[in-house]
C-alpha cells in the first residue's frame, strides 16, 4: 500500500546544488534540507533590500500576486503584501468574509475566478488543513501556504529558522524548545520539520492535553515540565495560546498555564545566558511571557518580523522562477 507523493511540484534537486525547482510552497515536510537552505540563503540576500532608502527591486515586475485569506491574519497578509511589493509585483487582497464565499460559492470556484483575472501566485491562508494542497490541484498559479489549519505555516517556520541562523550562526546541533499548544499549532509542525531536517534537537513542551503522547514519533523529545528542560535550551519558541483551547477545557486556567509555562525573568535567569527567545505572535503578554522578557535582550521577536519579510520575498522570488516547462509538468 504505497502512497504516491503529494503533487507539490517537481522532484527536488540534489542537495549539492541549492537550486529550486518547485512550483508551490505547501509545507516544510516536503522539502529537503538543501531546499530549505536555498530559501534561507536567498532570504539572506533579500534582507539588505529592506535597509535601502528605496526598498524595491524590479524582479517580479508584471507578476500578479493574490492574497487569498479565508481566515483573518493581518500580520501575515501585510508581510506577504509588502514582500510582493518590494519585488515590484502587483498585489491584490481577497478577503473571504467580504466575498462570494459567504454566498456559498465554493473555494475552488473562487480561486478559478481569481485566476481568470490573471494571477501568477496565490497566497492562501485557510482554517482547514490541506486547503492549499487542494487549491494547488485546481489552479495553474503557484500556491504559497500562509497557514492551513493545524497543518503547516511554512513561511513562519522559515523565518524562525532564519532568525535562529542569523542570531546563532547555525542551526545544526542546537537544542530548540517549542512551548505551548503543539497539538493544534501549524507553527509547531513547520518548526519541527524545518529544525529536525537542519539538524537541531527539538523538545516539545506543554501539558499532555496540548502535547499528547505520540509526538516523539515526529523525531522530537516531549516534556511536560518546562523548568526541567529549560536549562538545556539554546532557543525557546513560545507559541501563542488560543483562549478557546482553555474554554474547551484543554487546560484549567490561563493563570495555571502561566505558572507552569510562562516565560518570566526568573525562568530566564535559570536558562543559558544567550538563550534566544522567539514568539510567533501576536503575543499575549502575561500569558506566554512577561513584558520584560518579551522586550528584553534575549528576545528576537522583532527580528522575526523583519526576517519574515525577507523570507517571504525569497519564497515569492523562488516559486516565480520555475522554468517555462514547469507548468506543463502536471
Amino acid at each position: 500500500m504505497s502512497t504516491p507523493p503529494a503533487p507539490t511540484g517537481e522532484a527536488p534537486s540534489p542537495a549539492a546544488t541549492p537550486s529550486w525547482t518547485r512550483r508551490h510552497l505547501l509545507g516544510l515536510e516536503d522539502l529537503s534540507a538543501g531546499e530549505i537552505t536555498a530559501i534561507l540563503d536567498t532570504a539572506d540576500s533579500f534582507a539588505e533590500v529592506s535597509d535601502r532608502p528605496r526598498k524595491k527591486v524590479p524582479a517580479l515586475q508584471g507578476k500578479v500576486v493574490f492574497n487569498l485569506f479565508f481566515e483573518n491574519s493581518t500580520r501575515t497578509r501585510t508581510s506577504f503584501s509588502l514582500a510582493a511589493k518590494r519585488l515590484s509585483a502587483d498585489v491584490q487582497d481577497f478577503a473571504a468574509s467580504t466575498s462570494s464565499l459567504s454566498k456559498g460559492e465554493s473555494f475552488i470556484d473562487t480561486a478559478r475566478n481569481i485566476e481568470a483575472m490573471g494571477c501568477d501566485v496565490m497566497i492562501i491562508r485557510h482554517s482547514i488543513s490541506g486547503a492549499p494542497q487542494l487549491l494547488s490541484k485546481h489552479v495553474r498559479s503557484s500556491v504559497i501556504n500562509a497557514g492551513d489549519g493545524a497543518h503547516e505555516h511554512p513561511t513562519q517556520g522559515l523565518l524562525d529558522l532564519m532568525t535562529i541562523r542569523r542570531k546563532k550562526g547555525r542551526i545544526e546541533g542546537l537544542t530548540v524548545g517549542l512551548v505551548g499548544d503543539i497539538a493544534h499549532s501549524r507553527v509547531a509542525r513547520s518548526n519541527i520539520w524545518g529544525l529536525t531536517k537542519l539538524g537541531a534537537k527539538v523538545i516539545l513542551c506543554g501539558p499532555p492535553t496540548l502535547v499528547p503522547r505520540g509526538f516523539e514519533a515526529l523525531g522530537c523529545e516531549v516534556a511536560h515540565h518546562l523548568d526541567e528542560v529549560l536549562p538545556r535550551l539554546d532557543v525557546v519558541n513560545v507559541l501563542r495560546i488560543q483562549f478557546e483551547r482553555q474554554q474547551k477545557g484543554l487546560f484549567p486556567s490561563v493563570s495555571e498555564y502561566f505558572y507552569f509555562y510562562g516565560m518570566t525573568r526568573e525562568r530566564l535567569e535559570r536558562s543559558k545566558p544567550d538563550l534566544l527567545l522567539l514568539a510567533p505572535g501576536p503575543i499575549n503578554r502575561g500569558v506566554e511571557l512577561t513584558p520584560e522578557v518579551a522586550d528584553g535582550p534575549n528576545s528576537a521577536i522583532l527580528d522575526q518580523v523583519t526576517n519574515g519579510l525577507a523570507v517571504r520575498m525569497a519564497v515569492l522570488y523562488l516559486v516565480s522562477g520555475r522554468g517555462p516547462g514547469a507548468s506543463k509538468a502536471e
Partner: peptide, 18 residues
Amino acid sequence: LYRDDLGLQGHWPVLKGT
C-alpha cells in the same frame, strides 16, 4: 533582480546578494 531577461531562462539564478 534587475535583469530584463529574468524568467526567460529555465530557472531563476541563485542570488548572491548586493
